[in-house]
Design a binder for these strands. Structure first.
Length: 490
RNA sequence: CGGGGUGUGGCGCAGUUGGCUAGCGUGCUUGCAUGGGGUGCAAGAGGUCGGAAGUUCGAGUCUUCUCACCCCGACCA
């Protein structure tokens, strides 16, 4: 079994870091707060991109690209937006370096100071809305449904691989609409896209909801989110979709003539998910033997490991293995036949195990004789022997079963760790165990802040389609009409 | 930015009150044997001890400064 591997029980965050490192997902870089996403980790992101991109296209969106640099003046236009992001912006002030006159290496050329400083985008609303002004004159120009795959920078104090890094990759959708309702519908539609993606591809169940004013995106009228529960009982915001109202249209003066010939400001949405999802994926399914990936996002769905002694055996085994590889590939399954002779079978078993490959097929001389293989599944670690004849269908079903099992397991975990609290004592007690807590809240900012200060728990969201129910606030005792979702969060 | 911690071959670490040629595990290279869950044995390569200054006959070890990273807070996707 895997050695030198922390368990979740012993040290959850070390376990997480070990997985990131040993599964070769990422490593820390020479630049503080920034990570290098390694090929295997990046290929998981690519799988996510592929699925999401198709979903965006299927809902009528197109990709575009806007500059990484944003003039500082753009930023200062929307008051809440500035407030939210100013503290974590990287700023470009100069455009040239020169050799130090006394030979002390390269220095900034002070004579090359920018007239206007440029912000490295923490998000692109401002540059995009400044651009949209030129694109929109009439209701006939609407809607604009654009998505951008990009990197953004938020200068974070403390970083964690994938979950919070100074630079991260994401997609940001930015849409413009003629009516408020249409914009709200778009916001909700994209939230559904995200929750579908989380549940069907990532096999991570999520709660859809609305953020409180406190947790709202800087500049948004309403922020919708999906919230997932990690194995340590902490919540993770996995995606957000914002109804921006006319806020950005107003400050960037984006007006259009409506059907009645009247000028009106354009309605906006924006929505995004990031490489943070890779972190969510790790923490949702992985175990003490390493990474566990859902088949739909696994870069390698099936690995074939040959077992042999002599060169003759190796060749016989390889011949069979290649046949199996072809069969699986014909069904669209991504297969890796690891025929490296530089590594032992046992070594490979362990490697693919902590890399989370869903299905492993081992084939040795005995199997060649019996026309069989040994199939091991990563999620349950079960091993069985199967005939080669119908292998492709067997594996397809197995991949589906694994995908489903991971989702069911994650769902069961969430249900086991979701509570209702009706008293403050109860609330605090549950928090220490971790998990989601449904509790009454009086709806005030002050109470929310107090609870956060005293317990570090935040309101993750006000769930959509929430059941209305009379009750009294867990903290203040004041009247409340519904329970909201609390948790400690990443 | 506050509190705590760590910097020693690629990685993980030991190194006592300052004292001999700076060790160990793992990984790497080569050879032989092995091969159905991280093989064994043997040989070998690899280190300005984070950096700078100082104390001393002598510094990985003591002093001062500095840099980097990690953990806990404040802030956040």
């Amino acid at each position: 079994m895997a050695k030198d591997f922390s368990t979740r029980e012993e040290n959850y965050s070390k376990w997480y870091n070990d997985i990131v490192q040993k599964a070769e997902l990422a490593e820390s870089s020479a630049v503080r707060g920034c990570m290098v996403i390694k090929p295997y980790g990046y290929s998981i992101w690519e799988k996510m991109q592929g699925a999401l991109d198709k979903m965006f296209k299927d809902t009528g969106h197109s990709n575009a690209y806007f500059p990484i640099f944003i003039p500082k003046s753009f930023f200062s236009k929307e008051a809440d937006h500035v407030e939210g992001f100013a503290k974590e912006c990287a700023v470009v002030t100069h455009y040239r370096l020169k050799n130090h006159p006394e030979g002390k290496g390269l220095v900034v050329d002070e004579s090359a100071q920018l007239e206007e400083e440029l912000i490295i985008r923490p998000t692109s609303e401002t540059i995009i809305w400044d651009t949209y002004r030129g694109w929109i004159q009439s209701y006939r120009d609407l809607p604009i449904l654009v998505n951008q795959w990009a990197n953004v920078v938020r200068w974070e104090m403390r970083t964690r691989m994938f979950l919070r890094t100074a630079e991260f990759l994401w997609q940001e959708g930015h849409t413009a609409h003629a009516t408020k309702n249409e914009a709200i519908e778009e916001t909700e539609k994209m939230l559904d896209v995200y929750s579908d993606f989380a549940e069907k591809y990532m096999a991570v169940p999520v709660i859809k909801g609305i953020k409180t004013a406190n947790e709202r995106f800087a500049g948004a009228v309403e922020t919708f989110c999906i919230e997932a529960l990690m194995q340590d009982g902490k919540a993770l915001q996995a995606g957000t979709s914002h109804f921006l109202g006319q806020n950005f249209a107003k400050v960037f003066d984006v007006k259009f003539t409506n059907k009645d010939g009247k000028l009106d400001y354009v309605w906006a949405t924006s929505w995004g998910v990031s490489t943070r999802l890779v972190g969510a994926l790790i923490m949702a399914h992985s175990d003490d033997n390493g990474l566990v990936l859902p088949p739909k996002l696994a870069p390698i769905q099936v690995v074939i490991v040959p077992i042999y002694k002599s060169q003759e055996q190796y060749e016989a085994v390889c011949e069979k293995a290649v046949q199996i590889e072809e069969k699986l590939k014909s069904k669209g399954i991504s297969v890796k036949f690891d025929n490296r002779q530089t590594h032992k079978p046992g070594w490979k078993f362990n490697e693919y195990e902590f890399k989370g490959v869903p299905v492993r097929i081992a084939i040795g001389p005995r199997d060649v004789e019996n026309n069989s293989v040994e199939i091991a599944r990563r999620d349950t670690l079960e091993k069985e022997t199967y005939q080669i004849s119908d292998i492709e269908n067997k594996v397809m079903h197995l991949l589906d079963a694994i995908q489903d099992n991971l989702y069911q397991k994650a769902l069961a975990f969430r249900e086991d760790n979701t509570y209702k609290a009706d008293t403050w004592e109860e609330f605090c007690k549950i928090l220490d165990k971790g998990g989601f807590i449904y509790a009454h809240w009086d709806g005030t900012d002050e109470t929310e802040q107090k609870i956060k200060e005293e317990t570090k728990a935040t309101i993750r969201c006000i769930p959509l389609n929430n059941k209305m129910e009379q009750g009294s606030c867990i903290y203040s005792g004041k009247l409340s009409s519904q329970r909201v979702l609390f948790a400690r969060a990443y």
